[in-house]
Design a protein around this nucleic acid. Structure first.
Lengths: 241, 241
DNA sequence: TCAATAGTGTCTTTTAGACATTATATG
DNA sequence: CATATAATGTCTAAAAGACACTATTGA
């Protein structure tokens, strides 16, 4: 197969679309935004927000457009972390014809917008693919899985966790991100030491957060640092030592 | 722009191709395989081996086909590490029309094949993009850069370095991979301890390698382990402590 | 006052890095 | 024998983890 140029040796033409995996941490839960499909195929199933790439449009632009068109979030260029994940182009992934989807990863602070409409809502990332998962359209289950792994891994060696919190933030805010994404509990004291010793991870400010209703010492507020890589990395608690 | 569905709101149709970044370590140098283009555009410039995706063909299949068609290496499904890098689809990347290229990463032991033909050869990865670089076609300079970064990073937290050496291998072989890719020198004794203590990284065998011409104690031979992630990771010597 | 949360200090165990020492080959 | 390379051991410094203690708020 493929040895001789036969019937199938013709080059294919593709419809290219973008699917956006929007991740956030809301109420302590690592979550993915999905929209319910109205039309076939997979009508009624939940899908990643996405769109076809238009004439003259950059693929990254398409991702930004899908973000606000499908979710109602109007978001400036620098407000969110947007990075390409990878592409999915199996021949049979859409029965209507040959398509290739470029998946993008978006990391957001918990959006204040009232997003939980009937057909647009966040789902716990850990559930998707499991028994408590809603039906997912196309190969979007695989895409979400890849996105989760990418995000988990990048928390270790990049300052990406700060993309999940609004500025300025407390170190407790940041710790909650790690705990939600990794599904572990971290010692607050040791976490603090690692974060402040990693150069360029966070920038301390002089301001303090107001304590919660039960009181407590006011927490110092921080902003994102300039580092793109963490030295040393924030290592995930090991499964096997 | 993009606010109203106008002339540019039409969905685009793409020609999709695959470009393969073939990385190896030969003679202590981290290297990339490039082929010289015969045809315009960019005739005479050096490019990544690639091919259009055919009707009914999976994108990963296209990558495997490009690998042996353009380089003459005939390679079984499990002989090499092949993973998707990301896709490149800027509107103006090919003047002939709208194209999207899915880049794949291939890691190989130094191939015994006589590859250094006039129009197919390995180039030192560190040079590409710099002043000693040959002219590169399309956006292939950017792709090679991304590939280098991905490979460097994955050496830290995955056992991927073993993909660069033939089995069985010595720990010195493995160390040379890290040294070439990272461009550093590593202490042999400390390297050994970290490798053997990372569970599932390498499997010791009872066999020994034959010493070189100058003599020396025979080195134990190892095979690849089953781990997909390293605990703990092999941390790159830090730039800032 | 107490409860709650932030932040610091201290002790122990683990790991990293530098480097000496021993082991086993070639010539 | 000398030389080369592999493998182990040892010492020190740094980092991680457990956890006690202090600081500052709300009620």
């Amino acid at each position: 197969m493929g040895e001789h140029p036969g019937e199938d040796a013709k080059p294919e033409t593709f419809a290219v679309s973008v699917d956006v995996v929007i991740l956030t941490v809301r109420a302590g839960t690592f979550s993915v935004l999905l929209v319910r499909r109205r039309r076939d195929p997979h009508a009624g199933a939940w899908a990643l927000p996405g769109s076809r790439v238009r004439v003259g449009e950059g693929v990254r632009e398409t991702a930004r457009r899908a973000l606000w068109q499908k979710t109602g979030m109007d978001i400036g260029p620098d407000d969110v972390h947007l990075e390409q994940l990878r592409s999915y182009g199996e021949p049979d992934r859409d029965a209507r014809g040959r398509t290739l989807s470029v998946a993008y990863l978006v990391l957001l602070p918990d959006p204040p917008v009232a997003l939980d409409r009937d057909d647009v809502r966040f789902w716990p990332a850990r559930d998707l693919g499991g028994p408590a998962s809603p039906p997912l359209a196309f190969d979007h289950g695989e895409i979400v899985l890849d996105a989760r792994e990418r995000a988990s891994a990048k928390l270790e060696y990049t300052p990406l966790a700060t993309a999940f919190v609004e500025e300025p933030f407390t170190l407790a805010d940041l710790r909650h991100v790690y705990e939600a994404v990794w599904g572990v509990e971290l010692d607050a004291a040791n976490f603090r030491r690692k974060v402040v010793s990693a150069t360029g991870f966070v920038e301390p400010s002089d301001a303090r957060a107001r304590p919660g209703p039960g009181g407590g010492r006011p927490a110092r507020l921080y902003n994102r640092g300039q580092a793109t890589l963490l030295h040393p990395p924030m290592l995930r608690p090991g499964t096997e030592p």
